[in-house]
Every structure is written in C-alpha cells, then in structure tokens.
Nucleic acid binder design. Structure first.
Lengths: 293, 293
DNA sequence: GCTAGTTACGGCGTCCGTAAGGATC
DNA sequence: GATCCTTACGGACGCCGTAACTAGC
C-alpha cells in the first residue's frame, strides 16, 4: 500500500492501459507492470483484469479509497510547508467560473489596491479541482460556487483539512431566450419547469436541480465546457433553459440576449464559498478577510 | 512523506525518544535517526527538537495530519480485504464500557442462539480506539456510546469510511451517594449541579457536560479507568457525582450503593451507535442487523 | 564519563530498465 | 502478426545495521 504504487494503480485504472500510465508517469511499461504486480501481491488480490485492463471489484473498492488518500497526503505535505513558509507577495487563486462574481471581483480589486506589490494569479477550474488545489497547496485561496437553500453550506467533496466560509449569496434567475413564452413573467417556480427543455452544463448541473426538486429536468443539450457567455448564447438561441446567478446575465438585455427571470420558488440562492487551508498572517490571510467582506 | 517514515515520526514523537521508538518498531536507533533525517530533508524543515526530543511547530502540524492519514491507509487496506474476504464464523467486536448495555447484550445473545457456530470475541476499548479498530479492520463491528440530545448522532472522531447507526437510546441518571441531600428527588436539573462535586471519568467526561450546558462541573476526583463498578463504588462512597445510563446502576439500591436520580433537564440520553465498515452478506451483517433491533 | 543522537560505511534488498517471452485480438 | 502485458536479468540506488563519533548532562 505504498502511495507510489497507489498512484500508479489509479493512473493505470484511469487510462485503462499499462503503457499509457507508464508514459504519463515516466516509467517503462515493465515497471508499471511490476508495480501493479507488487500491489496485488501485497493485498493478495487481483485488482485489475487484463485485456481489457479494467478494475476488478476489489480494484474498484481500492480506487474509491486511493484518490482521497493521495489527496490527503499531498494536503498534509502542503499544510506543513505552508505553515512554515515565509509569506511572499505572490498569491495563487483558484475559482470556479461563476465564483468570481462582480462583488468578489470588486473586493479583490480593493484588496489589490491596498497592497500594490501583490502578484495574483487566478485559475478557473471545476469545484472539485479548486478544492484539490487548495488542499494540495497549489492554490492559496479557492472560490467555489453552487446552488443551495439560503445560508446552507455547499456540499463540496471531502478533500481533507480545508476551511470553508460562505462569502456571497445572490439571487438566481431562470435564463431563457428573449422570445420564450415565460420570458415576460415576474418570477418563475422551478417546479413548473420540470418538463421544460434544459441545458446540462457544469455551471448548473441538472442532477443538482433533481436533488433539490425531484425528478424531471430533461437534457435538451449537454454543454461540456465552462464558458458563461457560451451558455448565455446557447440559452439566447433557444437551446434550453438554465439557472444562473443574476449577475451572470447582462442587466439590460438586447433582442438577441438571454433573459433572466427571478426564481420565485423554491427559495434558492447562488452561494460562493471561500476555501483555504491554514492561513498564517500575511497577504493570503488579508485577502481572505477582504473577500469575506 | 513515505508512510513508513510517518509512522516512525509519530512513534518518536509519542515516546519523546529515538531509542524508545526504535525498540518499539524493531529498528536500531540509527535507522530511526536516519528516517527522521530523511523526512526532515524531504520537507526541508526541522520536525523535532533534540534534547529533549520534542516536536517543533511544523512537527506538531505534521503530527495532526499523520495520525488520521495512517489510519485511513490502514482503513483502505482493511476495507479492500474485508470486501474480498470469505465470511467466516469468527466475529470480532469492540465496544466502549457502557456500550454493551442490557438491551444489546440480550440482542447479541439472541443472535448467537440463532447461529450457534458463531465465535465472538469482544474487546473493551475507548471510543476512539473502537472506531480505529473498526476502520482498520481489527474489529468487524464496533459499539460506542455517548451523551447527546435525543436522536442526535454521537460526535465520533473522523476515522475514515465508517458507517454509524444509532441502536439504543436510554435515560440518563445522576449517580450520587445514598445519603446525598438530593438523592430523594424525583428528578434533577443538570444546570443546578454545575457547582456540585463531580467525578471526571472516561465514561462521562466533564468536558462533554460543559459542552452541553456551559462552564462549571469542577473535578472532585479524576478516575483514569473504565470500570463501571469502580465508578459506582466511588459515587456510593461520596467522592462525587457522575452521569450514567439508568441501566448501569443496580435497580434496587442497597444502603451502600449509589442512587440514580433521573435527569430531568436538559433532555439528554445515553446513545449507543453501531460502527461498521462495508458489510458483505454474512454473519457480520446478520449480527449488525440483530443489534440494530 | 554516561546517555543519546549522528555520521560513516558496507551489505543486502528493492526497484527500475532492457530485452526476451506469451497471450490475445 | 501486431499489440500489450509479463517475466528474466542486471545494475543502481536506498535502506538498515554495525560501529565509530559527538554533543549535552
């Protein structure tokens, strides 16, 4: 159960190929084969079926543990190093596409104005990756967003010892094309839209809506990307509906733009949370404070 | 950050000595010294001060991560092996001293009567150890107890992927000596007892009461053991008060025995939870079902 | 000078790479 | 027969033990 072997194992499982994993990890096929053999010998179990290379039942079980385990290992290392590091003036942020909303962008700007020497780099990633980057020390601060009932916390995957604090909550709107029959309404009830045509996007996964409201929400178009403007254009062209924070749509819609109709019921908000590890006094802690408002 | 080195590190930190850790781990002093040196070199930080051997700030931080990390590693291994193991007729239970109350003892007896070939071994341990044994696969089922508001879950330390289900909740009594001025009351309010003389015991840690009610609960005697009868005898002899599940005191008190006065307020119960990992069909699953009632 | 951790050095085991060997499509 | 994993073998490195060294009490 050497982490080294575990890493190789998850890589092989992910690629479904020893040789591809070897290429990614910088080993030879042979080394990977030996590592898997060693892991299987250690546990006394077959973890992978060969030809095709596919996890066995035991292998799938181990895979469920291996990811979080390796993440926690990196997180521990990062945390110890972070606590001992001298705070520099380089800050690495990671945020989901909708997390850096106007309010937070403004707070970030104010914080930077107060500390002109601060160098900031920002990465856009998925929520899980943001959490993993913060836990693993690749980012100092993370921002993740999601749709929840007011003042409920986001349900982020467990990625180890991370602190999360809510920073903003914003009204949600149903985004639909300008000519849509419902576009003129003052507000909409989600329950009335279970049979509408919906966009499946990472920004508003329909599984989340089903969790909150129940079955329904058929997929009219599945967008596998994270560009908000693309989503807005898809909506405007009538490909389907989606839920967005009000600030993600232009305030004065043109003829070609998507309309946002406030979501009346259920009471849901777009929540953004700040993620961080231990914060020794320094620019990271200052910025965390600034972003929290 | 090899788990091997981590294990050595926590052992050294626990003993405050390289040589003692070496003896426990079956290494030479020299090997331990080299392992710690390797870990410190890997992180680029001093983890232990020498003479006396004591963790540095970074070392303390690493210690906080190392324990859970190593536990999860063992837990992952145990889980994979457990899922693949053929169910035998040997069952290992671990329980806190107050967890195997009369109700559960009876359920266990019924389950054993139904499966006469079942061999059961039972260990009494602290709650954290019970959880660790279950997570690490050293026990098939665990029982842990604690004091909570009705139907609240116990707050067990995070010991990895473990399932917990409540199995019993029982009335709590204030245990006090027969001649105590309050012994005749029909019920007592905990808030009125914040200034009484209390026993500090692992069975009813006063910190828990302070969590629930607030400051107070001075320590009159600190018992570092887990024997319920000893606690009852201490109470009977007037060393102090404690909280016990009603079933832990004899139902018809003699002159020398401790009295139990029902706890009227706040509404608290003695809750027992069953802990287990993944349960493939077999005796362990059957017993878990039997214990759940 | 005694106790306890560190450093030097040598042997053994581990792990990887090269290359040949099978198994499956 | 091509692809892909496994096995055999050799070299390098890592890790531990013995033993000499050193720092505090």
């Amino acid at each position: 159960m050497d982490p080294h072997l575990l890493t190789t194992f998850v890589t092989v499982a992910r690629h479904g190929s020893f040789s591809a994993a070897a290429a990614e990890l910088g080993y030879t096929q042979s080394a990977v084969s030996q590592q898997i053999a060693a892991l299987e010998a250690d546990l006394g179990l077959a973890l992978l079926g060969r030809r095709p290379v596919k996890p066995t039942a035991a292998g799938r079980r181990l895979l469920e543990h291996a990811g979080p385990l390796l993440l926690r290992l990196r997180a521990a290392r990062a945390d110890v190093l972070r606590a001992a590091a001298v705070p520099g003036h380089r800050l690495r942020l990671a945020a989901t596409p909708l997390a850096l909303n106007p309010v937070l962008a403004m707070r970030l700007a104010r914080a930077r104005a107060a500390q002109p020497r601060l160098e900031v780099t920002l990465h856009t990633r998925g929520a899980q990756e943001v959490a993993a980057m913060v836990a693993g020390g690749e980012a100092d601060l993370g921002l993740a967003d999601g749709i929840v009932a007011p003042s409920d916390p986001l349900r982020l995957p467990d990625t180890g010892p991370i602190t999360t604090v809510g920073v903003t909550e914003e009204e949600l709107v149903v985004a639909l094309e300008a000519g849509h029959p419902l576009a003129g309404r003052a507000s909409l009830r989600l329950a009335d839209l279970v049979d509408a045509r919906w966009l499946q996007t990472p920004l508003c996964p329909l599984t989340r809506l089903r969790d909150l409201v129940g079955e329904g929400f058929p997929v009219a178009l599945d967008y596998r990307g994270d560009d908000v403007r693309t989503v807005a254009n898809l909506v405007a062209a009538g490909h389907g509906l989606t839920l967005l924070p009000a600030s993600a749509l232009p305030p004065t819609p043109t003829a070609m733009a998507a309309r946002g109709v406030p979501l009346g019921a259920p009471r849901l908000v777009h929540r953004v949370e700040l993620l961080h590890g231990a914060l020794p006094p320094g620019p990271a802690a200052d910025l965390a404070h600034a972003l929290s408002g």
